[in-house]
Design a protein around this nucleic acid. Structure first.
Length: 217
DNA sequence: CTCCAGATATACT
DNA sequence: GTATATCTGGAGC
């Protein structure tokens, strides 16, 4: 491993801060699991209780309980009947705030990633798409239900969240949440999405995604 | 690039 | 019982 790519595991203090600070600082960080390492290029902040878009909006439930665990815990949930997405719990502890890992670049273990992402008989997935999107990122890293609740701060945790020592990071961009009003009410948008400018692994925002009513029988 | 159907755990009435 | 969900892959422009 070259000196420039040397990293260290992130500590509890890193995660036990305001979710927006943690979100920003996770850009450029690495997440490794089971032979694959992804460099994070896009995240979203979820403010926990009081954030209408957050799973923790209405407080603690069996499903979202991990969000109320210690900062640095990994919250993996199942959604849309077929996808897993992964979050890292942020501070303050007990508020249910977390950072959704939305996209990244595979920087190690691409072969292993392809074993999980490529479909036999179909053209290989373009490299930039391997971890572009929260559910794709989870597949690429091999994260699913059993990993929910892992404490990534623990030295023996199989999921390693690390950051380069003294490395430079590109410009950080932020975007507002579209179509969701904050707790303050009308028009109170919350800049919740963070990404690294110019990264090909960051997809264009799909605003509003007006979901059609499910097909009626 | 944009549009759209898919398939199911979870939380709420 | 019903509505919703931190989305993706494929089709069509």
């Amino acid at each position: 491993m070259s000196p420039s790519s040397r990293t260290s595991r992130l500590a509890r203090d890193f995660f036990d801060r305001d979710v927006h600070e943690v979100s920003r600082d996770l850009l450029g960080a690495r997440v490794s699991h089971d032979g694959v390492t992804v460099r994070i290029t896009e995240v979203e902040a979820y403010g926990g209780i009081g954030d209408p878009g957050a799973h923790a909006f209405r407080g603690k439930t069996p499903r979202n309980a991990v969000l109320f665990d210690r900062p640095g815990s990994l919250y993996v949930y199942f959604t849309y009947g077929m996808h897993f997405c992964s979050n890292l719990v942020a501070g303050p502890h007990g508020q249910g705030a977390a950072v959704l890992l939305r996209a990244g670049e595979v920087i190690d273990g691409e072969d292993r990633a392809r074993e999980r992402r490529d479909v036999p008989g179909k053209p290989p997935v373009p490299a930039r798409d391997l971890a572009r999107g929260p559910a794709r990122l989870a597949v690429t890293l091999g994260l699913s239900r059993p990993h929910n609740g892992l404490d990534t701060v623990a030295p023996d945790c199989p999921v390693l969240v690390s950051a380069p020592n003294g490395s430079v990071r590109g410009p950080v961009r932020t975007g507002p949440r579209v179509g969701v009003t904050g707790p303050g009410g009308d028009g109170d948008v919350y800049p919740w999405r963070y990404w690294l400018e110019g990264e090909p692994t960051v997809s264009a925002y799909r605003p509003g995604v007006l979901r059609k009513r499910r097909t009626r029988p």
